[in-house]
């Protein structure tokens, strides 16, 4: 399991905010703490991301975050990709963010199988039926 240092978390938070800033009524990535426990959770589930993720962070350390993100996008797309996945996955898994975008998550919402479908009740499907068969039958042997 990857242990992420506080310095790395700080660099990640800055980069994540370049990718996911506070704008358009949405919080920034660091506002929902993508650099905290969520980061460990994600790397625990996706250890395959760790190497490129950390490579990106070490390349970005000490640089202005916007410039560092541009440089990674140009020179090491895999690293920026890993940072982007970790940031956006953490962001969109956060309940507060889901609430703002109106996403309840993949829902358990069974339908009533006995309900007459709207397209039957309102005659929409009948238009298709009225046009008749559209298949070419099996030719005679």
């Amino acid at each position: 399991m990857t242990t992420v240092s506080n310095e790395e978390r700080a660099v990640f938070a800055e980069l994540a905010d370049v990718l996911i800033p506070a704008a358009e009524g949405m919080p920034a990535a660091s506002d929902v703490d993508v650099q905290g426990a969520m980061l460990d959770h994600i790397l625990g589930l996706r250890p395959d991301l760790a190497e490129a993720f950390r490579r990106g962070l070490s390349a970005a350390a000490g640089k202005p975050p916007a410039d560092a993100a541009e440089a990674l996008n140009r020179d090491d797309a895999e690293a920026l990709g890993a940072i982007g996945i970790v940031a956006s996955a953490g962001y969109y898994m956060t309940p507060a963010v889901r609430e703002v975008i109106g996403y309840p998550g993949q829902e358990n919402r069974p339908a009533d199988p006995d309900e007459t479908p709207e397209y039957v009740a309102n005659g929409m499907l009948q238009q298709v039926i009225d046009r008749g068969p559209i298949f070419v039958p099996t030719p005679e042997a």
């Binding site: 990718l19 993100a69 990709g81 969109y92 996403y103 993949q106």
Partner: peptide, 28 residues
């Protein structure tokens, strides 16, 4: 699907096209 899958097609694009305020606009 969900909001993350929508991101999958963005690889290789200019940074501000895929990310930044545009991310929020696109998601909305």
């Amino acid at each position: 699907g969900g909001p993350l899958g929508l991101r999958a097609a963005y690889g290789g694009k200019a940074l501000d096209e895929a990310w930044g305020a545009n991310l929020h606009r696109n998601t909305r």
